[in-house]
Structure formats: C-alpha cells, structure tokens
C-alpha cells in the first residue's frame, strides 16, 4: 500500500498510555496532493496518531515518516515543510494575530504575510487582540491562517471544524478546497464533519478502538457501501437470509418489525440477485449512502467509542 513516493507514511504505528493501547498497529499513507480524511469516534486514536505523525509524541512501536524523514527524529526539519492545525488551538494566549504573524515570519522558512493578513481579514479575526481573548472559532481560523501562510507541502488538520458553526465550517472547508487545489498540498485531516469532508477527501481511513479498520479511496468506499432494505414474510428462513447476506458483507443488519435494514459492503450484482431470490423476501431496495451514513453504520455500534 505504501510507496516511498508518498509524502506521509504511517507504518505499523502503536501508541500506548501506560497499559492502554490508544493506537494499535496502524498503517496508512497519503499520496502527494491527496486529501486523506482520518475518521473515527472520540477516543478512536486519531489525535494520538496525529500527535505521533507531527513528531510530538514517541510511538511505542512503528514509525511515522513525512518526506521520508522520521518525524520523531527529524521533527525540526519536517516541520519546516509541514503546517499543523491542532485539535485545540495552542497559540499562546497572550499573543495577538499580529505578533504571531511577526513571530512566524522570523522562524519559518516561508511565511506569506500577505496571504495571512488577507485570510484574517476575510474571516474577521481581530489582529490586535490576544489570542486568549478570541472566540474558539476565531482562534481556529487564526491557527489555520498561520498554518496556510507557511505554504506547507503537507497540511495536517486535527478536527479543524470542531466547535465551528455551520457557516464558518463551510467557509473553512471551501477555502481549503480552493487552497489545496491551487497548491497541490497534501492534506491529512481528522474531522467529525463528515458532510463537509465528503466532497474534499480523496481517501478515507476509519479508526475504531485504536485500529484502522477501513482505508480506501472516498469513491470506492461510497461505491462499495449500500443500504439494503427489504420486507421479510412469514415464510422466510432467518438462516437462509443470514446465509444470503454473507456475500454482501453486511456491516449493520437491523430487523424492525417485518422489515430488514442493512448496510452492505459488497453490492455486486450476483450476490444481490441471489439475495432477491430467497423465498419470502420482497421489495428489495439498494440505495447509495453518504459518508456520514457509512460512518454511522460502521462505527455506530461501537458503544465505547474508541476506548479499549
């Protein structure tokens, strides 16, 4: 799956907090110019993965590489080419947007002050107020503006829309699309805004209880997963239904009254036809699914979220 040409590579990454395994042998890569959405419920291990990927936390085993450099060992060099927007904005609270711009201009190899100022202007972030006095959304916008102004080759966004209202979320994601299209930046994003990311991401990884359970292209994922609905009559054998569903790789199967509602992961014609031919099954419908529905179907039964 990984190729050395991929700018971002996570290779058999395991992260532990004491006896708790937060990330368990996770591997994926992000191709050049690709937008990779790393999804999962709270506590699934996304932020721990990101933390290792940006060289801020040491992996228990495995490694993370960006531009073929170990991000733990070569963090300083990696960070010269990477922009990071953390889950919780970490800009020092006493620092204003203006001071931040001045500071980044002195320590970053590239800092596009014009772009930075323009973006702050567009999203309405005051430049003189200390960041601690800004709203959560403004702080996030400030962090994003700072990251983008460094013109990174890789942009890592840890839930950048968290806590933002729908309008701001939309602006932010649309801005991202525009920026990324222009620059060909490689993006790794974790988010709970599945609707927003659906039109942006090229590839999706879904983490569950520390494991990466799905890692596919967005289109492939959406092609593969379908909703299957049907009505079960009295003469229908449960064993026969279960047997016929198996080739369809059901992710979720619910029986409500006389109806069956399932999300299937393999909607090929032969298997669907075989299912339709089962005695006592009627009104079989196959529908496409949005990313959010797929995600809910895959992760919704994870009662404990990502906690092991």
């Amino acid at each position: 799956m990984n190729t050395t040409a991929d700018p971002v590579i996570v290779d058999h990454l395991t992260v532990r907090y004491g006896k708790t395994t937060a990330v368990d042998d996770v591997s994926f890569s992000v191709g050049s110019g690709q937008v990779y959405a790393l999804l999962g419920r709270n506590g699934a291990g996304k932020s721990s993965t990101i933390s290792c990927l940006v060289g801020q936390r040491k992996a228990a085993s495995g490694e993370c590489r960006i531009f073929d450099m170990d991000t733990w060992r070569s963090r300083r060099h990696v960070m010269a080419r990477v922009g990071v927007v953390p889950e919780t904005p970490d800009i020092p609270p006493g620092t204003s947007a203006r001071e931040l711009g001045r500071f980044l201009g002195r320590i970053r190899p590239v800092f596009n002050a014009e772009d930075y100022e323009g973006r702050l202007e567009r999203v309405g972030v005051p430049r003189r107020l200390p960041s601690g006095s800004l709203s959560k959304g403004q702080r996030r916008q400030l962090a994003l503006a700072a990251a983008l102004a460094t013109e990174p080759e890789v942009l890592i966004l840890d839930d950048p829309t968290l806590g933002l209202d729908a309008v701001v979320r939309r602006i932010l994601l649309e801005e991202l699309v525009g920026e990324l299209a222009d620059r060909g930046t490689t993006v790794l994003v974790t988010t709970h805004d599945l609707t927003g990311i659906e039109g942006i991401a090229d590839r999706v990884g879904i983490m569950q209880q520390g494991r990466l359970v799905y890692d596919e292209p967005m289109d492939g994922l959406k092609d593969r997963f379908r909703r299957l609905r049907c009505v079960l009559s009295n003469g229908c054998s449960a064993a026969e239904v279960e047997h016929a569903l198996k080739p369809l790789e059901p992710a979720v199967v619910r029986v409500v009254g006389a109806g069956l509602d399932a999300v299937i992961g393999r909607a090929n014609h032969d298997a669907v036809r075989a299912f339709r031919e089962i005695t006592g099954i009627a009104e079989v419908e196959i529908e496409p699914l949005g990313l959010e529905e797929i995600f809910v179907a895959l992760c919704g039964d994870d009662e404990n979220g990502g906690e092991q």
Partner: peptide
Amino acid sequence: RDLSEGRMGFYYAQPLS
C-alpha cells in the same frame, strides 16, 4: 503549564529544535 494546558504543541509544530 504550557504542557498541562496543551500549548507546547505550538512550539513543536515549528521548525525549532
């Protein structure tokens, strides 16, 4: 305090040793 309040990441996200 920066560590416990999650603000040290700001420095580590920069090209600073």
